[in-house]
Design a protein around this nucleic acid. Sequence first.
DNA 1: AAGATTACTTGATAAATGTTAGTTAATCAT
DNA 2: ATGATTAACTAACATTTATCAAGTAATCTT
Lengths: 189, 189
Amino acid sequence: MLDNLLDTISNTIQITSTDIELCRIYFEAIEPHRNNILEEQEKKPQHLYFIVSGFMCLFYHDENGDEVTTKISGSNSFITSFLSFIHQKNAKENLQCITDCELLKISHSNLVKLIDESENFKKFSLIIFEEAITSTEIRANDLATLSAEERYKKLIKEQPEILQNVPVQQIASFLGIKPESLSRIRRKI
Amino acid sequence: MLDNLLDTISNTIQITSTDIELCRIYFEAIEPHRNNILEEQEKKPQHLYFIVSGFMCLFYHDENGDEVTTKISGSNSFITSFLSFIHQKNAKENLQCITDCELLKISHSNLVKLIDESENFKKFSLIIFEEAITSTEIRANDLATLSAEERYKKLIKEQPEILQNVPVQQIASFLGIKPESLSRIRRKI
DNA sequence: AAGATTACTTGATAAATGTTAGTTAATCAT
DNA sequence: ATGATTAACTAACATTTATCAAGTAATCTT
């Protein structure tokens, strides 16, 4: 499991054998099942998660109690309520497993230690958070400028695995449309 | 002009007379005219701006060359291409004056100094950046869950001054709709 | 395995938004 | 000030998306 993490990290930055040892110490492997909620809305996010295998999402309940999916991630990516995690404030979203997952998690305090002990991880964690923020900006701009169909096509192109692994309802919510509309778009294409 | 800045800061954190002195040193007053572009797409953002009076926006040119407005701000708020500014990378947006403006600007290197010399400003700048990110998240969620009319009503409620000061085209772009649709919504309400 | 529940699809219709084009109003340049 | 350009509004029509209701498929529970 750790190998996936190390591979992903080394795709972005150079890491030393000490860094590898630090990962071994600070990351913990867990294998939660489908539908498990690992972090909750209105609570401080405890961990940053690396997805070795499986799919996870962030969602919140709106005024009507409906679930709104704000992020969907698959293998070899990091996920948490990023901004809330960084500042250790209450999260606005729940973090949930969409499928059974193999994860590596690190607590906020251990991440602080890790960053403290390794300049490489300092750099790397900045990149992760930066990417998370950038992807939110891109989501906003896509919602503002693309039609539902264009957003769906873009999703297929960029993360095709999502189609086989994530329920239509969640994909629709993430795309900002109703499940019925997504059904229609899928049939048409 | 500095008073507006100091008032705004002290709404959020406690500041000392030393802090006030630091502001005097590091912030520079400028009065750019309507339509002036202060920071450009594909270049490193040079400054963080505090709007004493006037309105500013961030926009980018999409594939078709159309302008997409991603942020509109008025008096007593901070604006720049936040993420790019923080990491001193090329901006994805232009920063433009919508009206004639009175601004206070601080360069990236001076902000670093300011943060270094005052724990209060360190805290405060974190809050500014956090708010910028949060507002992007809210924009994305609004675009995903609200109708054009609901988004417009929300904008009226939260920033009514925008209506009198920002061209319809830019408001429409920010709301993710066509100017004609916004015209219709305005007439109806 | 059988029934109950939930997820997905389909169809008919309504509502919202986009498109095109023309008109009026506002702004700009000389 | 005047004509030229740009912005905003309006209307008719087209397209997209939502809503409601029903049917089928998949999953869960016992």
